[in-house]
Protein backbone atom coordinates (compact mmCIF):
# COMPACT_ATOMS: atom_id res chain seq x y z
CA UNK A 1 0.00 0.00 0.00
CA UNK A 2 2.79 2.37 0.95
CA UNK A 3 4.61 1.55 -2.27
CA UNK A 4 1.55 2.20 -4.41
CA UNK A 5 1.10 5.58 -2.80
CA UNK A 6 4.72 6.48 -3.35
CA UNK A 7 4.59 5.44 -7.01
CA UNK A 8 1.35 7.34 -7.66
CA UNK A 9 2.74 10.49 -6.08
CA UNK A 10 5.99 10.10 -7.99
CA UNK A 11 4.06 9.79 -11.26
CA UNK A 12 2.13 12.94 -10.42
CA UNK A 13 5.28 14.85 -9.52
CA UNK A 14 7.04 13.72 -12.70
CA UNK A 15 4.03 14.74 -14.81
CA UNK A 16 4.04 18.14 -13.14
CA UNK A 17 7.75 18.48 -13.75
CA UNK A 18 7.22 17.60 -17.43
CA UNK A 19 4.55 20.27 -17.75
CA UNK A 20 6.74 22.85 -16.03
CA UNK A 21 9.72 22.03 -18.23
CA UNK A 22 7.65 22.31 -21.39
CA UNK A 23 6.23 25.61 -20.12
CA UNK A 24 9.73 26.94 -19.48
CA UNK A 25 10.90 25.83 -22.93
CA UNK A 26 7.82 27.42 -24.50
CA UNK A 27 8.32 30.73 -22.72
CA UNK A 28 11.89 30.91 -23.94
CA UNK A 29 11.35 29.52 -27.44
CA UNK A 30 8.25 31.33 -28.67
CA UNK A 31 8.73 34.73 -30.24
CA UNK A 32 5.33 36.37 -29.81
CA UNK A 33 3.89 37.54 -26.54
CA UNK A 34 0.58 35.73 -26.92
CA UNK A 35 2.26 32.40 -27.54
CA UNK A 36 4.50 32.89 -24.56
CA UNK A 37 1.53 33.75 -22.33
CA UNK A 38 -0.10 30.53 -23.48
CA UNK A 39 2.98 28.53 -22.54
CA UNK A 40 3.39 30.21 -19.17
CA UNK A 41 -0.26 29.73 -18.24
CA UNK A 42 0.12 25.99 -18.89
CA UNK A 43 2.66 25.67 -16.10
CA UNK A 44 0.70 27.82 -13.69
CA UNK A 45 -2.45 25.70 -13.99
CA UNK A 46 -1.79 22.11 -15.00
CA UNK A 47 1.73 21.95 -13.58
CA UNK A 48 0.64 23.30 -10.20
CA UNK A 49 -2.25 20.83 -10.09
CA UNK A 50 -0.02 17.81 -10.78
CA UNK A 51 2.64 18.95 -8.34
CA UNK A 52 0.25 19.56 -5.48
CA UNK A 53 -1.73 16.38 -6.15
CA UNK A 54 1.54 14.50 -5.91
CA UNK A 55 2.33 16.13 -2.59
CA UNK A 56 -1.16 15.45 -1.25
CA UNK A 57 -0.96 11.76 -2.20
CA UNK A 58 2.48 11.52 -0.63
CA UNK A 59 1.53 13.07 2.71
CA UNK A 60 -2.01 11.72 2.97
CA UNK A 61 -5.17 13.64 3.62
CA UNK A 62 -4.78 16.18 6.41
CA UNK A 63 -5.42 19.83 7.12
CA UNK A 64 -2.19 20.75 5.37
CA UNK A 65 -3.27 19.00 2.17
CA UNK A 66 -6.55 20.92 2.32
CA UNK A 67 -4.53 24.12 2.43
CA UNK A 68 -2.50 22.92 -0.55
CA UNK A 69 -5.71 22.34 -2.52
CA UNK A 70 -6.73 25.89 -1.61
CA UNK A 71 -3.47 27.03 -3.17
CA UNK A 72 -4.46 25.21 -6.36
CA UNK A 73 -7.85 26.89 -6.30
CA UNK A 74 -6.25 30.30 -5.86
CA UNK A 75 -3.86 29.70 -8.75
CA UNK A 76 -6.64 28.47 -11.00
CA UNK A 77 -8.60 31.63 -10.27
CA UNK A 78 -5.77 34.13 -10.40
CA UNK A 79 -3.37 32.89 -13.06
CA UNK A 80 -5.72 32.59 -16.07
CA UNK A 81 -7.22 35.98 -15.30
CA UNK A 82 -3.78 37.55 -15.09
CA UNK A 83 -2.89 35.92 -18.40
CA UNK A 84 -6.16 37.16 -19.87
CA UNK A 85 -5.47 40.75 -18.77
CA UNK A 86 -1.93 40.70 -20.15
CA UNK A 87 -3.04 39.21 -23.46
CA UNK A 88 -5.82 41.78 -23.67
CA UNK A 89 -3.27 44.54 -23.27
CA UNK A 90 -1.10 42.89 -25.91
CA UNK A 91 -3.98 42.71 -28.36
CA UNK A 92 -4.93 46.32 -27.68
CA UNK A 93 -1.45 47.76 -28.04
CA UNK A 94 0.39 45.56 -30.51
CA UNK A 95 -0.66 46.36 -34.05
CA UNK A 96 1.36 43.62 -35.65
CA UNK A 97 -0.11 40.41 -34.35
CA UNK A 98 0.94 38.34 -37.35
CA UNK A 99 -1.38 35.58 -38.48
CA UNK A 100 -3.26 35.56 -35.17
CA UNK A 101 -6.83 36.64 -35.72
CA UNK A 102 -8.52 38.52 -32.93
CA UNK A 103 -12.19 39.25 -32.48
CA UNK A 104 -12.64 42.63 -30.90
CA UNK A 105 -15.47 42.73 -28.42
CA UNK A 106 -16.00 46.10 -26.84
CA UNK A 107 -18.36 44.79 -24.20
CA UNK A 108 -15.96 42.27 -22.74
Amino acid sequence: MEWVRLIVSAVFLLLGLLVFISAAIGVNKFKRALNRIHAAALGDTLGILFMILGLVVWKGISFASFKLLLVVLFFWLASPVAGHMISRLEVMTDEDLGEIEVDHHEDL
Binding site: V81, H84, M85, D107, L108
Partner: peptide, 17 residues
Protein backbone atom coordinates in the same frame (compact mmCIF):
# COMPACT_ATOMS: atom_id res chain seq x y z
CA UNK B 1 -12.21 50.92 -15.25
CA UNK B 2 -11.72 48.71 -18.26
CA UNK B 3 -14.86 46.83 -17.25
CA UNK B 4 -13.42 43.46 -18.00
CA UNK B 5 -16.16 40.98 -17.21
CA UNK B 6 -13.80 38.10 -16.42
CA UNK B 7 -11.68 40.18 -14.06
CA UNK B 8 -14.75 41.56 -12.30
CA UNK B 9 -16.30 38.15 -11.72
CA UNK B 10 -13.07 36.66 -10.45
CA UNK B 11 -12.29 39.60 -8.20
CA UNK B 12 -15.77 39.25 -6.70
CA UNK B 13 -14.61 35.85 -5.47
CA UNK B 14 -10.98 36.66 -4.73
CA UNK B 15 -11.11 40.04 -3.01
CA UNK B 16 -13.08 38.93 0.06
CA UNK B 17 -10.85 35.85 0.33
Amino acid sequence: PKNDLILQKVSCVLVPL
